[in-house]
Design a protein around this nucleic acid. Structure first.
Lengths: 228, 228
DNA sequence: CCTACAATTTACCAAGTGGTCAAAAGCGGA
DNA sequence: TCCGCTTTTGACCACTTGGTAAATTGTAGG
């Protein structure tokens, strides 16, 4: 269609005819994944492929050239956002008794909060949870085993209740109250639209303090009970 | 399906010939609204009208006969589920100083938890929050003004800090930590699929206790600060 | 400059999507 | 029994949607 003489080196990057831009496979794929993370966090996993492609600036079949299906793209997003951000050091630090327990817990949760309290992280998790629960089952199992369970163990040790019964309901609820509460800060901001805390470390520190105060009262009460 | 004696030779029809059942306007409308509440809580607000109609056992144009559009039906669902369940007595009890503060707070939150921790309530709220935030803006404003703000006031009075500055960030975060934590119990059960606490009143009582312990430490610290 | 190949797009499909409408059929009243 | 009104539905519409195929075009290597 375009005559031999190329149209003028069209530097006016207006809207009209999309200039076909050829990128390397890696660059384009990166661009699509990044665009998808942004897009799905805003429009949910049911957002349209065409619209996603438009926001990236390409035609929608190109997305299918890089990912065989929408599902495959979504799985890639999961992997990038969730599997990629978990830090094994959290679990290690929780168990490292060279530091006082409350300080360990506070330090870990300040970093955890910084890591997960982002728009993509919070919104995509909720979207996925409502859609099929796929990531949740995976992610929350990880959290429960690698973070919450060790915390219960350390809390018991801290309070001189060292034993390895299964956590009771009250203990489980207490630690989920802390953990879920941190996540809920993100829900309030990125889903409800409330303002984000100005002093996040202080908020987290206060939450951990509240957990410790309650644990000192509730853990001993549970010490003789059968597993919840 | 009763063993009907009238199915004519026309039984060659592929799908089961749905028996046309005529109900009064009120009955049918009630049936549709109830069905919609169930359906939307499971499939989200993007669930299809045809599928909804099928679960109710009618054809989908019938739904449009009762509600002019999908949006109108959804608004009706909001009204039934949220506007209909708020109890003004919560606010009254929070402020009724004839009872000790912690007991009031515990009593209110046990009833509040019983009221909102249902599948429809939790799931539709989250779905709506992700979709457009329409109910949240309304509902959470209600919660903030009628419940959380009075609680902060009563907590200050309880701790001898009676004044009417705007709540500070730390105070706001603390009470939202309690309130959001209660709601999050529902998220864990109806969205994440975790088991529901066997002893909900005990869990709520523990949460309120944790709030009180933390408040005794944090509210006095905030007493001289400018509004957050 | 040309060629070959991969990146990119246009045109298309089949199955769904909310919503409409006129025909069909229960049911109360005569 | 039949009439007439209202509920209920089958058929249909225009638009959306994930996905495909073949044509198109940028560009590296000769």
């Amino acid at each position: 269609m375009p005559p031999s003489s190329k149209p003028p080196a069209d530097a006016s990057r207006t809207v009209a005819p999309r200039r076909r831009q050829r990128l390397s496979t890696e660059e384009r794929e990166r661009q699509i994944v990044d665009g998808a993370i942004q897009f799905f966090s805003e429009h949910g996993l049911t957002g349209q492929m065409r619209e996603l492609a438009t926001t990236i600036g390409v035609s929608h079949p190109l997305v299918f050239h890089y990912f065989p299906s929408k599902k495959a793209l979504i799985e890639r997003v999961y992997a990038e956002v969730y599997l990629g951000r978990w830090k094994p050091e959290w679990e290690h630090r929780v168990k490292d008794r060279s530091e006082p327990f409350e300080a360990r817990l506070t330090g870990v949760y300040i970093d955890y909060a910084r890591t997960i309290l982002t728009k993509e992280w919070v919104r995509i998790l909720i979207h996925s949870a409502l859609a099929d629960g796929y990531i949740n089952d995976h992610y929350l199992t990880l959290v429960g085993e690698r973070l919450l369970r060790p915390i219960i163990g350390e809390a018991r040790a801290e309070l001189g209740l060292d034993d390895d019964r299964e956590p009771t309901e009250a203990e489980t609820e207490l630690i989920w109250g802390l953990h879920g509460g941190i996540f809920y800060i993100g829900v309030r901001h990125w889903i409800y639209g409330h303002k984000f805390p100005e002093n996040l470390p202080q908020v987290v520190t206060d939450r951990v303090r509240a957990f410790m105060l309650a644990a000192r009262e509730i853990f001993p009460r549970e010490a003789g009970k059968p597993a919840g």
